[in-house]
């Protein structure tokens, strides 16, 4: 009996979520295949496939998937930048997080609150200040400049995840291994790393997510010279209109999200049981 009502509720919540979250994607899909979709038609009057053969110019998906749309370049840049940012953030945060959880270390609160600053300061302030400093240094409009700039919004998330990972690590296990005669190296490879790995992966996924969704910093620091999926999308819909190619680009800009969703979900599920990661998931809001 209880199971039935559970299913009923689940159905209700589920249908609601589908309509609100995924429902709006349907008209975008329709728009991406439309050639003429004018007021007040509920469906396009002329579809893209019925005219594409006659057009000398690549229309809708023909344009989006052509090299001229720069979509592949932008996707590559997005991936490259977010991977570099993640790697850098990991290298910077891993040793630091270990120190922060050490019981002998007194400055933990102060340092962690320093790390909340980038979450509070307006992104525009960061981006414009970076730009002004990067231009004379020759970093504006370069990958290096963008990667360095992305570090700031990303570090708070990486730090929090890693600190909670270290906190969840039971020192007794490592001590036990030590008592059993495991060398420092053996302890690291066989105990510490396997225990930390799921958490590190989760932190990396969050940073990847945050970095690949950043628009404003990339737009301003990149000066139009480095295109990523968000900046490409902005150049298309910045005026507040959505034509077929803009709709196609919107759909493509969703793909990394879908992939990351599947990836995070797999890793986070086990990891959540450890608890305390709640806030680390904040990462996904940008």
């Amino acid at each position: 009996m209880k199971g039935v009502s559970h299913n009923g509720k689940a159905l209700l919540v589920g249908v609601g979520l589908y309509i609100v979250i995924l429902g709006p994607i349907i008209p975008v899909i329709i728009q991406s295949f439309a050639f003429q979709w004018h007021w007040p038609d509920l469906l396009p009057r002329v579809w893209w496939w019925s005219v594409r053969a006659d057009s000398t110019f690549p229309l809708a998906w023909d344009y989006v998937l052509s090299p001229y749309s720069h979509v592949f370049e932008a996707a590559g840049n997005t991936l490259f930048i977010s991977l570099s940012v993640t790697l850098l953030a990991l290298i910077l945060c891993l040793p630091a997080a270990r120190v922060l959880v050490s019981p002998h270390f007194k400055w933990k609160t102060q340092i962690l609150s320093l790390f909340t600053l980038p979450l509070i300061v307006p992104e525009m302030a960061l981006a414009l200040a970076f730009l002004a400093v990067f231009i004379p240094l020759g970093l504006a409009g370069t990958y290096t400049g963008i990667i360095v700039a992305h570090l700031i919004p990303v570090l708070p998330y990486m730090m929090r995840v890693l600190v909670s990972v270290y906190q969840g690590l039971n020192p007794a296990v490592v001590e036990q291994a030590q008592l059993l005669g495991a060398s420092r190296w053996q302890r690291l490879v066989h105990i510490t790393i396997p225990l930390l790995l799921p958490g590190i992966l989760a932190g990396c996924l969050f940073t990847l997510l945050v970095s690949s969704n950043i628009f404003l910093i990339t737009f301003l620091v990149g000066q139009g010279r480095v295109e990523t999926l968000p900046t490409l999308l902005f150049s298309k819909i910045g005026g507040g209109a959505l034509d077929a190619t803009a709709a196609g680009l919107t759909l493509i800009a969703m793909i990394p999200g879908f992939i990351l969703l599947l990836a995070t979900e797999r890793h986070i599920r086990d990891y959540q049981r450890v608890g305390a990661v709640g806030r680390s998931i904040d990462g996904s809001h940008r």
Binding site: I21, V28, L209, L233, I237, T250
Partner: peptide, 28 residues
Amino acid sequence: RHHQWLHYVYKFPLMVPYLVGIALVIVL
């Protein structure tokens, strides 16, 4: 936790740029 798919679906908006949300609002 019996309905795994629900826990997938609702997180989707977290994973995409704000610009995607803007596009959806424009079209609707």
